[in-house]
Design a protein around this nucleic acid. Structure first.
Lengths: 234, 234
DNA sequence: GAGCACAAACTGTGATCACACGCTAGAGCT
DNA sequence: AGCTCTAGCGTGTGATCACAGTTTGTGCTC
């Protein structure tokens, strides 16, 4: 467990399923999905340099699947091709992060609005459980668990909107923002975090009130934004 | 001019600048930008199968840059990796197209709102010229010119929003919708098309009225949607 | 003449090699 | 001791080869 990357791989083992990656698809797709999940989970640090050969060795594959996956992630702006012939995680400046949040407000607000009335009581109860878990993780000051549950909560809500394209775009935004959020929460703790916006989201979804759900999700995003943006350079 | 692809390439010649593609970047990036522009311009047809080796030969490169570019486009959903080990342009069904439009309404509406108050009088005049050109192209029933001007108009508006991430997402959506719109307009003519929504957009931008600009852009999208959606299967 | 089987051509995928460039660490000089 | 230049290593990129799978086209059989 010393190296989180090696801990999840090699991709040939059943452990690849730990990130929900199918086993029979082409290797490059599996590498892409794995890397994307790891970026969202905060396995890598902002600014960290990743190399094709290095990842290929850790993953037990040749360089080909890795370089294709890395290029796709560069296309998602989850990675960055620097002038030095090097690939690294972007170092988000304040403006970059605010730009992401501006788009998140529009996209996630839309998704929440579309989800209203689509969730079964069981699924709504599950959202309650996730929120309760987040509250416990916040008390225990466990950023990793907190962010993982937060991701599950939001993506569960957005998936129910029934627009796969929208969900994919949102996940790509999270992949981009994931490293920063994980880094900051790990170094600053999550004292400021509260789950009350999540309760408002669930309440709105229970009432099948799309407008309220949109506003609640947007409030959730807006509340977390300033604290993070303030810690970013420029 | 018999083959539009070969007409634009090979990438080594000054002609690559015809699609605004830089000359010194890595080849794979140039291929990606070229293909993306060609998809938006309707060079390929919906459902058309593209092969790595075929494109590589037309572009005068090896297969490597092409396959990386194609994988990035698959990541954008501009292309589709089929089960038959084949890469093709997606055949959008009605639901797919409506999903794209739903996201377009949110993203392009946001961009227009942010652009209000950012355009100089010269840029606003240029928007007037583009709109006039569209009216002329509509009268002449020239779908290619009409769509090219329409693209220039919208992307000019969205670029001024000052959010590069937002602009990139919108361009990816257009890359996805481009082939269908070109195909339909080419086979159905553009009798139904009017430029009045564009005039409303310009008027709102002149007044620096973000709310009105957002609504005008959304009306522009909404007016074109049913006619296209009705022609799509399912 | 119609249907089936086999073969050839095509597809994307993975792996490997050669290369040009940027960086770095070490040696040699002042 | 401090600075500079150089040699080596690591980087992404482009090209090529081998392979498994699918599709297509042809020639044979019934």
């Amino acid at each position: 467990m010393t190296d989180p990357v090696a801990a999840i791989l090699p991709l040939r083992t059943p452990q690849s399923a730990a990130f929900g990656v199918a086993d029979s698809e082409p290797l490059n797709g599996r590498v892409y999905a794995t890397l994307r999940a790891q970026l969202m989970a905060g396995v890598f640090e902002p600014g960290e340099v990743v190399s094709i050969r290095g990842l290929a060795e850790k993953l037990g594959t040749s360089t080909m699947p890795v370089r294709e996956a890395l290029h796709r992630l560069i296309g998602d702006h989850a990675l960055e091709a620097r002038a030095n012939r090097t690939i690294a995680l972007p170092l988000l400046r304040r403006g970059d992060y605010l730009a992401v949040c501006d788009v998140r407000l529009a996209l996630e607000g839309l998704a929440a609005e579309r989800t209203a009335g689509q969730l079964s009581p069981d699924e709504l109860d599950r959202l309650d459980e996730l929120t309760a878990g987040m509250a416990k993780a916040a008390l225990a000051d466990d950023p990793h668990a907190y962010l993982a549950l937060n991701k599950d909560f939001h993506l569960t809500v957005y998936q129910a909107a029934g627009n796969p394209l929208l969900l994919d775009l949102i996940e790509k935004l999270w992949t981009r923002a994931g490293p920063v959020m994980n880094y900051l929460f790990r170094h600053q703790g999550l004292a400021m975090q509260t789950v009350s916006p999540h309760e408002a989201i669930i309440a709105a979804l229970r009432r099948a009130d799309g407008e309220a759900a949109r506003l609640a999700v947007q409030r959730d995003i807006r509340e977390a934004t300033p604290g993070i943006a303030a810690s970013l350079p420029l």
